[in-house]
């Protein structure tokens, strides 16, 4: 493998990681602060992609669609919180898993009823349709580079928000000891709603960004959701910093595993079985790494201290 190809694969890994981070950030906050398992988080990602695609076609501009998708995602998140999730905070995890799984099924079918089951056409982002030739014969789309930059900016913004503002302080305090925060006179219900809406908006934003790159189909959030859970478990539940590092790690491991494992295995076995084993092993790799990390550090890489 040439240096150029390795560089391209590193970029691919980083880009996947950044996208995962945007989904995982909201998930880890909701899980960490509210101790609430929200399987329906992937649904927010899917809805973000659908809303951005439809509004983008309507406004004939990808960027306008993206911009409009943000308040709509926030609104959908708040409505879902008010309708369903609010009534589950006090319940045990099993009830939460069951109810939010029900939300996945309902919303997936609603999406099918509204938009149909065929993949949706998405307008290409104006100004970012070209590419940079990083390697002879391969252009790296500028839009994918833009995703990396935007993701890094969002990560920075989140860090400032959580680490440097009063609202962020409350969120961190809530993650450590919610009843104590409540006892100090903070309206914890309002805080929860705020965190939830914000998380939903981030997931919607990720979905909208993913639209021009991936297929916008019903159930597109499911694969992302599983990886996002891996990310927050590796990173430590409730930790934004952990989610960021774990997301990039998962993105890199997944990409490099797929890129290199079949070739590496060919050194020790014949070509056709190396391909099969390599493919199987590459798709398991992130889970193996997760298991290994949990073995040595059961609370993840950056555990949130609980009071």
């Amino acid at each position: 493998m040439s240096v150029n190809l390795l560089l391209v694969q590193l970029l691919n890994g980083a880009q996947l990681g950044i996208l995962l981070f945007l989904v995982a950030a909201g998930l880890t906050l909701v899980f960490g602060v509210m101790d609430f398992i929200n399987l329906a988080h992937g649904v927010q990602y899917m809805l973000g992609a659908y809303v951005a695609a439809s509004l983008g076609v309507w406004a004939n501009s990808f960027w306008l669609g993206l911009l409009l998708a943000l308040p709509v995602s926030l609104l959908i998140g708040l409505v879902l919180e008010w309708l369903v999730f609010r009534h589950l905070y006090g319940r045990d995890h099993l009830s939460q898993v069951l109810a939010t799984f029900g939300v996945i099924l309902t919303v997936d079918d609603a999406v099918r009823a509204i938009w149909g089951s065929a993949p949706l056409p998405v307008p290409q982002p104006e100004g970012f349709t070209g590419g940079v030739e990083i390697m002879p014969g391969l252009t790296y789309p500028t839009f994918r580079l833009a995703i990396i930059v935007v993701g890094l900016l969002v990560a920075l913004l989140l860090w400032l928000l959580v680490d440097r503002t009063k609202a962020g302080m409350l969120v961190r305090a809530g993650a450590s000891n919610a009843p104590m925060v409540s006892a100090l006179g903070v309206d914890i219900g309002k805080l929860f709603t705020l965190v939830f809406g914000f998380g939903a908006m981030l997931a919607g934003f990720a979905g909208a960004l993913a639209g021009p790159v991936f297929a916008v189909t019903p159930g597109m959030g499911d694969a992302v959701l599983i990886l996002a859970f891996v990310v927050i478990v590796i990173g430590g539940i409730g930790s934004i910093r952990g989610a960021f590092i774990a997301a990039v790690l998962v993105g890199l491991i997944d990409t490099l595993g797929r890129a290199m494992l079949p070739d590496l295995l060919r050194l020790v076995m014949d070509a056709s079985s190396a391909r099969q084993t390599g493919a199987a092993l590459a798709s398991m790799l992130v889970y193996i790494v997760m298991a290994a990390i949990l073995f040595f550090s059961p609370a993840g890489l950056f555990p949130v201290r609980r009071g």
């Binding site: 040439s2 391969l138 790159v213 991936f214 694969a223 990409t255 391909r275």
Partner: peptide, 23 residues
């Protein structure tokens, strides 16, 4: 080269880069 990807593959950028390299 033959590449087998999982059915729930999210992104093909890795494979596309390999195709470009193999010419």
């Amino acid at each position: 080269d033959e590449i087998y990807v999982p059915l729930n593959q999210l992104d093909f950028s890795t494979e596309v880069a390999k195709i470009a390299a193999a010419k």
